[in-house]
Computed example of a mutant assay.
Amino acid sequence: MPLPFRTDWPRLWRVLLTLLLAFGAAELCVGLHTPLPWMIGPLVATALATLAGVPTQSALSLRNMGQWTIGGALGLYFTPEVLHMLATLWWAVLLGAAWALLLGWLGSQGLWWMHRGRLAGVPDGALRSTAFYASSIGGASEMTLLAERAGARTDLVAAAHTVRVTVVVLVLPFAIQWSKQHWHLQAIDMVPAVDRFQPLGFALLALLTGAGVLAMRATRRPNPWFLGALLVAMLIAALDIQLSNVPRPLSNAAQLVIGISLGVRFTPAFAHGAPRWLLGSVLQTLALLAVSAVFAWLLALLTGLHPVTLLLATSPGGITEMAITAKVLQLGAPVVTAFQVCRLVAVLTLAEPLYRRWLKPDSRKN
């Protein structure tokens, strides 16, 4: 009698071997005292192995659980005191969302200028839409879907988002670590609602945040595994309900699988498919980081918040990765998360209307 299910043993072995490689790289980075060792180590090791042709494999279920874990852990920072502080900074959060939209537009202009007339088989109209959605600082999957509706090259859009997030994850933590050593930056005193592990409380926390994930998935919201857990944990912390913290080993494991999910995208085909486009995406990301640093410094003067916290909050990185960076380096995780969530909502809501307003008339002329 045949089994009711089949196990894909080759894929399972690839996943396990990739996890072992990532774990070894993370432990090496811990020994070398690199920033974010549990995410950067797996990311770099997996990317290098994948580029070399090693059959690495990321498990989507593990990545989802990693985002669920990080979302729940971050939500616990939103205590009543933190929410009160954020309420006084609503104008700065909205300004950060507007900055993200402007940053995406500036990036699209630069990307279009770098590749105008230089990408074979891509007319100027398609290049404009491709550059716009490749530069919009929102969820990669959502931007790729919008790009497809606009007739853009979705493969180039997805590649640009992968490069952007990876460059930010690799550059910012090392820059912040260097700044801490040379400029004596101090950690920001923001702690989660509860600082101890309680088995029963943790089980209830997992159950409640899991329900939030399912609700977000049922309503087809973006990034449901992260945002669903985040919003429920935020409510728990805001109500000052003392359940449990998220143990550090679980948080480290979550960072590891998220690092793997980024690293496995760097296949040989990815690297050789459009090298000029990838190089342009790297240069664009570095330029956006530079102008974001200036904006963060100016916003820090107006708000009194730490400029490095605001750099993480307004940089062109992914929401999960920037929130992890702020949490691990103790640089105001709830502030960064609030800015990033608001930015994500603004970009997902306004990217398509702004594309029609800013770029569609120009594309019709070509």
Rank of each mutant, 00 (worst) to 15 (best):
V168C: 13
V168A: 13
V168T: 05
L170N: 07
L172Y: 15
L172T: 12
P173W: 08
P173Y: 11
F174L: 10
A175Y: 10
I176W: 15
I176P: 06
Q177D: 14
Q177S: 15
S179T: 10
K180V: 07
W183I: 10
H184V: 07
H184T: 06
H184P: 02
H184K: 06
L185Q: 09
Q186T: 08
A187T: 14
A187E: 14
I188N: 06
I188V: 14
M190L: 09
M190H: 11
V191L: 11
V191N: 14
A193Q: 12
A193K: 07
A193I: 12
V194C: 13
V194G: 11
D195N: 14
R196A: 15
Q198C: 13
Q198G: 12
Q198N: 15
P199K: 04
L200Q: 10
L200H: 09
G201K: 00
G201M: 00
F202G: 01
L204G: 06
A206W: 08
L207G: 06
L208E: 06
L208S: 05
T209Y: 05
G212W: 06
V213A: 01
L214T: 08
A215M: 10
M216T: 02
T219P: 11
R220T: 03
R221C: 03
P222G: 02
P222S: 04
N223D: 11
N223M: 08
P224E: 03
P224Y: 03
P224F: 07
P224V: 00
F226A: 07
F226Q: 03
L227D: 03
L227F: 03
G228R: 00
G228L: 00
L230G: 04
L231H: 07
V232M: 07
V232K: 01
A233N: 06
A233C: 10
A233Y: 08
L235W: 10
A237L: 05
A238G: 09
A238P: 05
L239A: 15
I241V: 15
L243N: 03
S244P: 03
S244A: 03
S244Q: 02
